[in-house]
């Protein structure tokens, strides 16, 4: 389980209606991409930070760490804008610094906006919501089962890895590669076996091969909250368009 999965499963906004979180997260993402980065991007970053830390209750340090992870890629990409390779070798690109900072700001704001959705909503809720936009139930169910299996297989791999290490299977490179190969080879039959037993467990509860339907609690959507989110987005858009 990644830190993002963990936070998504436990944060204060987990039970909020998906429509609200999607409107906010995708709205912030769209604004970050559409508006000129200055001063909209910093404003979006501030809003996203407030939403995640004050709203969803994620500690600021955790939020900073999660946001910083993709930033490495953004900075590498931006760095290439600063320099140019011409006839005289490598030189500073004209206007390169401005372009690089604009790109960094915009990308950071976009990531932060999207993270307000992914940090407050478990992946399984997002996948389940695909049904409401017309994706066939079978595909959604397969995706959800795959997700569950990835988690279980991840745990299995982790404990197999620990068991190998405990028996000194990782003391040098040669042995580590050998051990890892054996682990990978073993993971498939173990996972298939698990799938087989899961099928028996489902059948025991009356599953006959049709839909894997479960009751999904759907919190009531509040029109007032939706309106507030919309107002916030509009305010951000006006601020981003008019202030520069």
């Amino acid at each position: 389980m990644t830190p993002i999965d963990r936070i998504a499963a436990t944060n204060r906004w987990r039970g909020r209606p998906l429509v609200e979180k999607a409107l906010l997260g995708l709205g912030l993402l769209a604004l970050a991409l559409a508006l000129p980065p200055w001063p909209a991007a910093p404003a979006i970053l501030v809003v996203a930070t407030l939403v995640v830390t004050r709203g969803a209750g994620v500690p600021l340090a955790t939020w900073a760490k999660i946001l910083a992870a993709p930033l490495g890629f953004v900075l590498t990409g931006a760095a290439t804008l600063i320099v140019t390779v011409g006839d005289h070798g490598v030189a500073l690109a004209p206007g390169g610094l401005a372009a690089a900072s604009a790109l960094t700001l915009r990308a950071t704001a976009a990531i932060a906006g999207l993270l307000t959705l992914t940090l407050t909503t478990p992946a399984t809720d997002l996948v389940a919501a695909l049904r409401r936009v017309g994706v066939p139930a079978e595909i959604v169910e397969i995706a959800l089962l795959t997700h569950r299996f990835l988690l279980v297989a991840g745990d299995t791999a982790q404990s197999m890895n620990a068991a190998q290490a405990a028996r000194l299977g990782h003391v040098d490179w040669k042995r580590r590669i050998r051990s890892t190969g054996m682990l990978a080879a073993n993971l498939l039959p173990r996972t298939l076996d698990r799938a087989h037993r899961l099928e028996q467990g489902l059948a025991a509860r009356g599953w006959t091969g049709a839909s894997l339907a479960v009751l999904r609690p759907e919190p009531p959507v509040s029109i007032r909250r939706l309106a507030a989110i919309l107002a916030l987005l509009v305010a951000l858009a006006l601020f981003g368009c008019l202030v520069p």
Binding site: T124, R148, R194, R197, Q200, G201, R205, L212, V214, L215
Partner: peptide, 21 residues
């Protein structure tokens, strides 16, 4: 092994599987 039986994202959803069936 309970891990062979639980398949839904949350406990509530998982327990609802049988009654719906």
């Amino acid at each position: 092994d309970a891990d062979d039986q639980l398949f839904a994202p949350t406990v509530f959803e998982d327990v609802s599987f049988g009654p719906l069936n």
